[in-house]
Nucleic acid binder design. Structure first.
Length: 584
DNA sequence: CGGTTCTGCCAC
DNA sequence: AAACGTGGCAGAACCG
């Protein structure tokens, strides 16, 4: 049983209970939007009280619907995200033969519009609908029931749809988690952050002016170059000045500068490092993104081409290690920080059923395992070779090590090579659970067409070959990165299930209130951060040990969900800490 | 002047 | 050594 929520007009919502084929089982209920949260809360409560399996909420876009519910203090157990599922189903090669995949694209094929408001409930679905209508985008949805039915039909038409079902479920619960993490926020101590900034840059100064330590470095750079006007923030200005000083560099990038010996190099690199901190995560960033002691990034599930999550605003994908000490648990709380060790190589071993490679990953350090098997001589070599295999490196040390890897792990290497060849031919590739790559763009195809014609110039031919190889590297990586993203989704989904269990067993847990969390998460362990292969749970200290065990169990369960009995391990690095920076 | 592209660097 | 995947972002540089 599922309940499809759809908006009928700016002030009301329809709740339609449907069966497993998406057929209505009762007359739809009309609700005022303002009463939706209470309605959902009551249904969730009643199911929990009855010990029944949770009903699935079906809606167009979890970030909107669930964002609003969370703002109203209401949590749900399960959902089906129509838009995310639509995109997967339409593009998956597993569903290519269905009417659903063959139908013309609709509004459902377009990505959800990004959230714009910070965290406050100013941007509710209610207002969004008005915006949507005003912007001329057809009032979605409101064929949500029909869309759900179409998706269920499509899945039913796919032979052996088990993996695809798992993917849609994982993607949907991922969308719930994304909304929950945004709502809860990452605990952030601005005074710690400020202390780091002051240490690195000098005391805070108004936006647009250089802090003292940066100004001092800029002065040293000017002196050493004998040029009073050079501006270290301007690549053009720096490049000219360095050329005049006899450094025949072609760019001012860090790696090129590091190749030269000159007194100005050290202070310049130091300047760049600190200036980066100021512009990317300085006081301006802090003012803009830290609200009441929490960082609330806007996660975008499925936002990357491979199915990885993207984020928008605040740069959550790139929190520099420099400032991670500011991520600090509330008093009486802990952070459980975990990351999957060498996730992608392990995923590759499982995808290709390469038992030798999986065996090398039996320990916590897969690269050490590869060395122990005598494939290469050092851990560094093992790492470079593996990354090169997954990214498509052809030159340098990585390229030179490839033959050794191919000899030791022929199945794994064959899998990535085949994915690369498919991409070079313009074909689609598909992850373990069924997410397929987009086809190459029209200009890519045009380039290939032109090059294959009789009168093609050598320039056209080489350009086309280069584009083909580029796309091959993308598809090569897609299968591994995308399948790893699926493992991570299942990991988080299992973990969330476990955390809800803790909550259910501790109904009135008094404990310490989390300082800045809203009513939904102020007393319970909850996910606060996710980045490709690592997670952070913010938990009352008394549950930290149990949470850590759940995190570890969830990783093992995810491995079994995806790969059954295939003997591949997914060990974690895991630490229970006060501060993120203490985790590794 | 505002909008777009480029540069360089951060994360996994 | 700077090729080899996925992203986000700020500020400079460029352009009409």
């Amino acid at each position: 049983m599922a309940i499809v929520l759809s908006r009928t007009n700016p002030t009301s919502v329809t709740a339609s209970t449907v069966d497993e084929r998406g057929e209505l089982v009762a007359a739809p209920i009309a609700l005022e939007f303002a009463k939706l949260a209470a309605f959902v809360a009551e249904r969730e409560r009643a199911q929990a009280a009855a010990g029944a399996a949770a009903e699935r909420w079906v809606w167009s876009d979890s970030s909107r619907w669930y964002g609003d519910l969370l703002n109203a203090g209401v949590r749900v157990q399960r959902c089906h995200d129509l838009r995310l599922s639509h995109v997967i189903l339409r593009n998956s090669t597993l569903a290519a033969a269905t009417d659903f995949a063959r139908a013309a694209p609709s509004d459902w094929s377009r990505p959800a519009e990004p959230l714009t408001a910070a965290v406050a409930p100013v941007h509710s679905a209610l207002f969004d609908l008005a915006d949507t209508m005003a912007s001329g985008r057809s009032a979605v949805a409101e064929d949500s029931v029909a869309e759900y039915r179409r998706q269920l039909e499509a899945i039913a038409a796919v032979p052996d749809a088990g993996r695809l079902r798992l993917l849609l479920a994982a993607e949907s619960v991922g969308a719930l988690i994304a909304a929950e993490m945004r709502n809860a926020g990452l605990p952030w101590r601005t005074e710690v952050h400020d202390a780091i900034l002051t240490e690195e840059l000098g005391p805070r100064v108004p936006y647009g002016t250089r802090p003292a330590k940066l100004e001092a470095l800029a002065g040293r750079i000017r002196n050493l170059l004998g040029d009073n006007t050079v501006n270290p923030d301007s690549p053009q200005s720096m490049l000219k000045a360095l050329n005049r000083a006899g450094l025949m560099i072609t760019s001012t990038s860090r790696w090129e500068l590091a190749e030269y010996t000159h007194p100005v190099i050290a202070p310049l690199l130091e300047y760049k490092k600190r200036a980066r901190l100021l512009t990317a995560n300085g006081w301006t960033w802090m003012d803009q993104w830290i609200i009441d002691g929490r960082f609330h990034p806007d996660y975008v599930p499925g936002g990357a081409a491979t199915g990885r999550w993207a984020t928008s605003g605040g740069g959550a994908l790139q929190l520099p290690r420099q400032i991670r000490a500011a991520v600090t648990a509330d008093p009486g709380w802990k952070l459980v920080v975990a990351d999957a060790a060498q996730l992608e190589p392990r995923i590759l071993a499982a995808l290709s059923a390469d038992t030798s490679m999986a065996a090398a990953g039996r320990g916590v350090d897969m690269y050490a395992g590869i060395v122990a098997s005598g494939v290469v001589e050092t851990r560094d070599q093992a790492k470079i070779a593996m990354l090169g295999a997954m990214y498509g490196a052809t030159t340098g040390e990585s390229g030179r090590l490839m033959p050794k890897l191919t000899r030791a792990y022929p199945r794994a290497i064959r899998l990535v090579e085949q994915a690369a060849r498919a991409g070079e031919r313009g074909e689609l590739v598909t992850t373990w659970l069924g997410r397929s790559s987009a086809p190459p763009g029209e200009d890519w195809r045009e380039a290939q067409r032109r090059a294959s014609q009789p009168g093609a110039s050598t320039a056209e031919e080489s350009r086309a070959r280069s584009r083909a190889r580029d796309w091959g590297r993308f598809t090569r990586n897609f299968v591994v990165q995308g399948s790893a993203a699926e493992w991570a989704l299942c990991w988080m989904a299992e973990l969330r299930k476990g955390l809800l269990g803790i909550e259910a067993r501790n109904p009135q847990a008094p404990g310490h209130r989390a300082a800045a969390s809203g009513p939904v998460f102020d007393r319970v362990p909850h996910l606060v951060f996710f980045l490709h292969d690592e997670i952070i749970v913010h938990t009352p200290a008394e549950h930290a040990e149990e949470v850590a065990a759940l995190v570890t169990d969830a990783a093992a369960t995810s491995g079994r969900l995806l790969f059954g009995d295939f003997p591949v391990d997914f060990p974690l690095g895991i630490a229970t800490v006060e501060r993120y920076s203490d985790a590794k």
